[in-house]
Design a protein around this nucleic acid. Structure first.
Lengths: 393, 393
DNA sequence: CTGAAAGCGCTAACAA
DNA sequence: TTGTTAGCGCTTTCAG
């Protein structure tokens, strides 16, 4: 029961890598190959005396192999074909034998191997989802939407976060092999890799674009322009700045483009370069500190998503800047948090789960348009400077 | 290019379910079976005239079947065994034939089927991770840690979020079937299901406990007690409240227990019931509003994790409560965000990625103790009321 | 109504 | 050095 302090993760901290930190969208946080990595377990092994080996403290590896269809057949005194029929509720098998087989199944605790089935069916009943990272509500919702259609089809979902993997493209290819369809989020793979993959099979791209595969998106550009227009026309803000990395993902690129559109339309210029950071709460907080240090806050900050905006809400006030009195802040996506934080967040609603659901249906073989565009909606609340509609706070 | 507004997600919104909202830890957000679910695609199909069917706008389903080892063998004029040897870099095959085979492989774009291999090897080279939800940095880090050892072993990771699935236990069983090992987070499965699964094979439980499987944890109870003691002894807070659902996960339960320990030790009582909410930023914001409405803030809020604390930071100031002047707030986990938000968060460091790495190694067959306890560390910053050590802000 | 057998893609003895 | 063949667990004709 003593506390174990020996790290198995190869000295990330020592190398200046922030092990604690999580980057939702962009950076790689661990080394590809590390010679020291296996060391601990082998060393630990070597240290053990023969008597300790396999002793009580070590957990026994369960070697009991699962029963196969043949075991059941033998046990029930029937052929494997009959067992297979029983597991498929085939009406042809007479109820007497069915009973017998079922009992054998229960007794031995048999469950058909997914692997065997997949090989035979030539279908894995698995849907792959490729995302940049796994943090944050946006991707969680996307997955949720996909799950909702997957469960109905008896399909399981495999999620792959590419930014957790140095060998992203290869990992995706391997995933593709194990799945019947693939949903790939924009910004996960280089364009050429994406295109190659798209050509290869049943893939749907969400929040991105590619030649050769259907896409499911929202018109972030238009929406961002609308949002920015509100800031300019209703509130008269002139000095606005974008928070997010336009080169990081198509979604962010579109939103930035819309932001620029609205400015240009009014002869305005950006109050500064985009704050090129990730898409997580942390990046919002970092941006807030950066801005604070610059000591020249713009009128309004247009964040690439709600999480960035939340990061600002959790940082700017503590630094002495009131929102929206000193600086307006807007988000994007309308996560449920947006209407709960204070001030409530002005943002753009986007049917994220629906994106996932559509993509899933398409990836699973439903007919789907080459380019599905889902609607967005400007959601004006208080963080832009508008009055609370009613209600206390 | 017209915007498509027909929902495929079965009228969640209409039924009062918040489609936008994401619950990281606890609630189920979509229906199990919904009769209307398939409707849209079939309807859409039916609406189409014969001429539209398969027309330009619809994406062609790629039917080109991948080449198998036999195709390569034929193409190269060798046996499948030789092809297999080439794909395994078997030194026995003479370089001349190797070349020939390799050319065939390249020409046909052959990649060995993971399925076929798995069946033959009796090993899937896949590690399963079962988590409650996929949002938030904590789980992302856990996965990251696991990935770091997985990549080194050429193993892919399969993540399953149980709270996205109504049929959690079954989904886990299915996952177990497709993987060589399983990491299961505490709070994902009912105890009995967990125990049953633990008995079945190679599973490691992280941040939880179970009879029959090794666990990897931190001593959250001790850490929480230490944190709470700091609040009481250094700052003299008397009225403290816990934010989090102790029944939601073992981790939270431990932390709550430690909180209570420290109070009891000093003859203090809780300033109120725990605020039983989820573990995400949103829940923190909700808690903040709840507290604000109660109009009687405690001295200090001990949050079950950093995300809850961040939710408070993003809400309380806007509601007129200064942190820590009016109320102290502490987190747990020491996500990187904690030292960036303002005020900087007092919290407890926990080697989350390391937890994942250890668990992964164990699940993949490395010898592992029945109970691995990783160290934590109290991280005192400003949100508890301590002075900033140095540095501006 | 049930069984035998071929086959899904691959690996690994065992032979040659 | 290469080929033949028997599985791995399951499904599915085709006979009976």
């Amino acid at each position: 029961m003593s506390v174990d302090t020996r790290p198995i993760l190869p000295g990330l901290r020592e190398r200046g890598v922030d092990v604690t930190g999580y980057t939702a969208y962009g950076r790689l946080v661990y080394p590809v190959t590390s010679p020291g990595a296996r060391a601990i377990s082998t060393r630990r092994c070597a240290q053990m005396t023969e008597s300790q080996r396999g002793a009580s403290r070590r957990h026994p590896s369960n070697t009991s192999t699962r029963p196969t269809i043949r075991d059941i057949a033998r046990e029930a005194g029937v052929s494997v074909a009959t067992v297979s029929r029983v597991t498929h509720d085939d009406p042809r098998v007479i109820s007497e034998t069915k009973q017998r087989v079922q009992r054998a199944i229960d007794r031995l605790g048999y469950r058909p191997s997914a692997l065997g089935r997949a090989l035979s069916y030539q279908r894995t009943s698995t849907l792959g989802i490729v995302l940049p990272g796994l943090g944050g509500p946006y991707f969680a919702q996307l997955i949720e939407g996909a799950e909702s259609v997957a469960v109905q089809r008896g399909v399981v979902i495999n999620v792959l976060g590419t930014h957790l993997r140095p060998d992203a493209a290869d990992a995706v290819r391997r995933l593709a092999e194990r799945t019947d369809g693939l949903i790939i989020a924009g910004g996960t793979l280089p364009d050429d890799e994406l295109a190659a993959l798209a050509a290869t099979g049943r893939v749907i791209v969400v929040a991105g674009e590619v030649e050769g595969a259907p896409t499911v998106v929202t018109d972030g550009r238009r929406a961002a322009a609308e949002l920015t227009s509100h800031l300019a026309d209703v509130h008269g803000y002139r000095r606005m700045r974008f928070v997010g990395e336009p080169d990081g993902s198509p979604d962010t690129a579109w939103r930035y483009a819309g932001f620029c559109d609205a400015l240009a339309e009014r002869g305005l210029t950006e109050a500064g370069e985009p704050l090129r950071l990730g898409l997580d709460v942390r990046s919002g907080a970092v941006a807030a500190r950066l801005l604070h240090d610059e000591a020249d806050l713009p009128d309004a900050l247009v964040c690439a998503n709600d999480e960035l905006a939340i990061g600002m809400l959790a940082t700017l006030p503590g630094l002495g800047h009131r929102i929206p009195a000193d600086v307006a802040v807007t988000g994007f996506d309308d996560q449920s948090l947006a209407e709960i934080a204070s001030p409530r967040l002005t943002t753009v609603f986007q049917p994220t789960a629906e994106l996932g659901a559509r993509a899933a249906a398409g990836a699973l073989g439903d007919p789907i348009d080459d380019n599905t565009i889902l609607p967005t909606r400007l959601v004006v609340r208080e963080s832009c400077g508008c009055e609370p509609e009613h209600a206390p706070n």
